[in-house]
Amino acid sequence: MHAPYIARPSTVSVIMLKVLLALLPAIAVSVWFYGIALLVQLSLASATALLAEAAMLRLRGVPVAPFLKDGSALLTAWLLALSMPALGAWWLIVVATLFAIVVGKQLYGGLGNNPFNPAMVGFAVAMVSFPAQMAHWGMPHGPLDSAAQLAWIFSRELPAGLSLDAISMATPLDYLKTQLLLGGSDIASLKQAPMFGHIAGVGSEWVALAYLGGGLFLLQQRVISYQAPLAMLAGLTALAVPLWLWQPAHYVDPLFHLVAGATLLAAFFIVTDPVSGPTSARGKLIFGFGVGLLIYVIRVFGGYPDAAAFAVLLMNIAVPLIDQLTRPPAFGKRKRTKKAGQHA
């Protein structure tokens, strides 16, 4: 044992536990609106993640216990389950989680070494491979009871008289995008559709607010810093506001963007992932802002209804560059261009 001989009793597990804790309100709200389907997905994802992690650790010849206990695999599973449609088939979440853990995390060297956010890798794989399945979003207080939800997830069987359309609906983001593409009327009239609530999706806006609450808890606990979330929301707003002011009939209001879809989940739980994000404060600002911009661009001009995963993955690629460019000068030193400047 070497100096320092004393250490602050903070561990990776504690950090991960706090993040998991911060997700609980959102889970509770989701279950209230959408039923126990989410709990099923959470359990499936957790079990798959832990098994996959353990198997991969074994294969890599690394001790399994300390890494399973760190909670990072569980967190990945939860984030993934929360971003996927709750009414997705059981194998969908399993495949996505497997990809997240095996390819997104362990193949890169496990905890701390993954350049991409594993949960977003899993989500992107599912989104790209099974676009149809990924559109099965449940409706709040939908027609399926718990048993029916279970049956639907595991055997794709619906109670008599119900069709797929009757139990699922498009997300507001999806709906707006399709309708506008089809040359639909202005935003105001589109917003009359049943899936819209006060600000964004009915029900889902409350889940989003729960994410906000969890995020504030993490900020208060100093588990995350404010730069990345703030910058991400700022980036999103920075594009949303001018376009909305310019053509309010065609571009939905910024507040909708801030609450809809996975915005707040991404802001407080995804872009704040330390492993795949930059480390310096300035780097976090750039990273978050970039994610915000990309989310808006992909949502409004791109091919997918929601964009958090792709935006985050794209910015993940840029992280080493951001880190390199934003490395603050050491104590008492000026910018690192100093040397070059002297010679020039």
Binding site: P66, S72, G109, G110, L111, N113
Partner: peptide, 14 residues
């Protein structure tokens, strides 16, 4: 001076 818990990889928490 209680012994430190086993080390884990850096998670770049900053």
């Amino acid at each position: 001076f209680p012994p430190r818990p086993p080390a884990l990889p850096c998670i770049r928490c900053g």
